[in-house]
C-alpha cells in the first residue's frame, strides 16, 4: 500500500509536469493581460475572464478556420486511405524483390524539407487554380502523409494471416471484394489508428497550410500565425487563440488514444 502511494505520487507528479505547459496556457487564457504578466505568477487567485476569447473571435472568425481544419485533416486522411490501402495490400500479400526498396524509397521522400519543393508546387497550384482551395491543400497533405500511411498499413496487414485471404480468393472473390469485405474489416483497428494519426498530423501541419492557403481554405495554423508575435501585452490573447487551436484535436486524441496506439505499434502488441 505504501508503495502504491509513492508510485501514485511520482506518476502524478511527472504527468502533471508534462501537462503543465498546456494547463498554464489554458489558465492564462482566462486572465486579463495585466494578470498574465504578474510576478509572482497568479495560479488561481485571479478573477477569470472570457474577454480574451471575445477579442480573438472579433478579430478572426474562429469557426471558419476550425471548419477548414476539420475538412482538411479528415479529407486528406480519407483520400490517403483510398490510395494507401491497395498499395499496402499488394506489398504485404504479394511482395516482390523490389517491395523493400520501394518501401524505403517511399519513406525517404518524407525526409526532404518541404520548402525545397515549395516553388514548383506553388507554380503547379497556380496553373491548376488550386491556390487557397480546400481541394488543393487536401491533396498536398494527403501526399505528405502518404508514406507514413503506407508504412503503418503495410506493417499492420503483415500481421494478418495470408491464408484467410487465400480462402476468400479460392471462393471466387474479386480483388476489390477481397479488400473491401475481408481485409478492411479484419484490420479496422489498424486503419482507424492510421487515419487518426494522419488527422492529428494534418491538423498540426504548418508549412504547406500556411503557404498554400490564405482565406478560403485557411485552417487554424493560419489563425494562430496572426498571433505569433506580440503586440504590447498579448500573452492572454495568445493563450486564448492557442487554446482554441489545439482543443479539438486534443480531445480527439484523448478519446481515441487506445485506437491510436494499437496500430502504431505495428501490430507488435496483441
Amino acid at each position: 500500500m505504501k508503495k502504491k502511494i509513492i508510485i501514485t505520487f511520482f506518476a502524478w507528479l511527472f504527468s502533471l509536469l508534462i501537462f503543465f505547459p498546456i494547463l498554464w496556457m489554458i489558465i492564462t487564457s482566462f486572465k486579463t493581460e495585466i494578470d498574465a504578466v504578474a510576478i509572482p505568477p497568479l495560479f488561481f487567485s485571479f478573477e477569470p475572464t472570457l474577454e480574451n476569447y471575445g477579442i480573438v473571435q472579433e478579430r478572426s472568425n474562429y469557426l471558419k478556420f476550425a471548419q477548414n481544419s476539420v475538412i482538411i485533416s479528415f479529407g486528406s486522411s480519407i483520400l490517403g486511405l483510398v490510395l494507401s490501402i491497395p498499395i499496402a495490400w499488394s506489398m504485404a500479400f504479394h511482395p516482390t524483390k523490389r517491395t523493400k526498396g520501394t518501401l524505403l524509397w517511399i519513406l525517404s521522400t518524407k525526409m526532404m524539407p518541404p520548402v525545397g519543393v515549395l516553388i514548383p508546387i506553388y507554380l503547379i497550384f497556380r496553373d491548376f487554380s488550386l491556390l487557397d482551395t480546400q481541394l488543393g491543400i487536401v491533396i498536398v497533405l494527403c501526399f505528405v502523409n502518404l508514406p507514413i500511411m503506407i508504412w503503418l498499413l503495410y506493417s499492420y496487414f503483415k500481421e494478418i494471416p495470408n491464408e484467410i485471404l487465400e480462402a476468400v480468393r479460392i471462393d471466387g472473390a474479386s480483388t476489390l471484394q477481397e479488400i473491401l469485405y475481408v481485409l478492411v474489416p479484419l484490420s479496422l483497428p489498424g486503419i482507424a489508428s492510421t487515419s487518426l494519426l494522419c488527422i492529428v498530423l494534418a491538423w498540426n501541419e504548418a508549412f504547406w497550410t500556411l503557404n498554400l492557403t490564405s482565406i478560403d481554405a485557411a485552417p487554424l495554423t493560419t489563425f494562430i500565425a496572426s498571433y505569433s508575435s506580440p503586440e504590447g501585452l498579448f500573452y492572454a490573447k495568445l493563450s486564448a487563440a492557442s487554446t482554441l487551436s489545439v482543443l479539438p484535436v486534443l480531445f480527439l486524441g484523448w478519446f481515441t488514444q487506445k485506437q491510436l496506439v494499437r496500430g502504431l505499434t505495428f501490430g507488435a502488441v496483441k
Partner: peptide
C-alpha cells in the same frame, strides 16, 4: 476578407 499575418510570414 482579411489575411492577417505576422510580418515575416
Amino acid at each position: 476578407e482579411w489575411v492577417t499575418l505576422e510580418e515575416n510570414v
